[in-house]
């Protein structure tokens, strides 16, 4: 990786470009490989298909990146999505207007975030523990909300799930807006910079006059609202809530995407661009596995190996000349 550092110095490339060179290289290599092995991979319809599939993950990952910048962590986002999907489906099924149902979904997410944030800040419970516990509660709550059966959302959200604007799916547009919002928050707003300061040194941030507790709670609430949005997006794609949708396994994918992108688990350092690369990597690998029809027993091996390679490559970057 010395060569990369040298190149950066000699070519004067902005760090934003070279920072993710390793991860981007892994992504490009995988795309090249898939293009050679499968003629459909590099077609527009398939790429749009992949992007639509990762939209939900991208929305969650973008919010989580800002939260992790501040040293927070939320393992319950996927489970919040599960509950929102179930409740909104229930509301739609009982004839509630789609707008009201959606607002309820977002507010529900905000409530979950508020609970997480208050437990983490007021009771000083580690975020990992807090949100793992709420995740378990919410996974159960989702089953209760749908009584263990599929709940059809009817056609109210179909337009959102399948519609396009100039050939771009609505879901993808929403994801891009959220990602852009997260990136702008981190780069251009006091709120985002304060999040980084809190993650980098919470004591110094507090002594410098940043209201650390309030800020942290707000971040959890914002993440809950994004989980609400993601739930509505997911429901619009699935058309129904069913047991096993979203939940902890979605969450693990989201956390993996953020961490592989280079955002520090301990806060203070976050990159939305890296998160986007991480999300794309996971989405493309899942798509590629289906296209190449890799045997089911080898699928998790393949995903795991890709994750490992990406994580190692990304880590090598930090081993610059010291």
């Amino acid at each position: 990786m010395n060569s990369i550092s040298l190149n950066r110095a000699t070519l004067g490339l902005p760090p934003a470009l070279t920072r993710h060179a390793g991860l981007a290289a892994v992504l490009v290599l995988i795309c090249l490989y898939l293009s050679v092995r499968s003629e459909v991979f590099a077609t527009t319809p398939n790429l749009v298909n992949v992007l639509r599939q990762v939209a939900v993950m991208a929305v969650l990952a973008a919010g989580l990146t800002v939260l992790m910048a501040a040293g927070g962590l939320d393992f319950s986002l996927g489970s919040q999505v599960a509950v929102v999907v179930a409740v909104v489906a229930r509301l739609l099924e009982s004839g509630t207007h789609v707008v009201i149902a959606s607002i309820c979904g977002v507010l529900l997410g905000a409530t979950f975030g508020l609970v997480n944030g208050l437990v983490v800040t007021v009771f000083k419970v580690a975020p990992f523990v807090t949100t793992l516990a709420t995740a378990t509660v919410l996974d159960g709550a989702a089953l209760i909300a749908m009584k263990g059966q599929s709940v059809s959302a009817g056609g109210a959200l179909t337009d959102l799930g399948t519609g396009e604007l100039l050939g771009i799916p609505y879901l993808l547009l929403i994801a891009v807006l959220v990602i852009g919002g997260a990136a702008a928050t981190l780069r251009w707003t006091r709120f985002g910079r304060d999040a980084l300061a809190i993650g980098g040194n919470a004591v110094a941030a507090r002594l410098g006059g940043i209201p650390v507790l309030r800020h942290t709670v707000m971040l959890y609430v914002a993440n809950g609202m994004l989980a609400g949005l993601a739930g509505i997006m997911l429901l619009s794609r699935l058309g129904a809530a069913s047991p096993g949708t979203a939940g902890l396994h979605l969450e693990l994918t989201v956390v993996a995407a953020v961490v592989i992108g280079g955002t520090a688990l301990h806060g203070g350092n976050a990159t939305v661009a890296g998160t986007v690369l991480g999300v794309l990597l996971l989405g493309i690998v899942a798509n590629g596995i289906n296209l190449l029809q890799i045997d089911s027993f080898y699928q998790s091996v393949a995903v795991g190996v890709v994750l490992l390679v990406a994580a190692v490559v990304n880590q090598l970057r930090h081993r610059g000349p010291h």
């Binding site: 910079r193 980084l196 300061a197 980098g200 040194n201 004591v203 110094a204 941030a205 410098g208 203070g268």
Partner: peptide, 18 residues
């Protein structure tokens, strides 16, 4: 570094934080 500065943030951001 423990309780004064935010190590990962830039010099400019640290010195203007207040």
């Amino acid at each position: 570094l423990g309780t004064g500065l935010v190590p990962q943030l830039s010099v400019d951001e640290n010195v203007t934080a207040l």
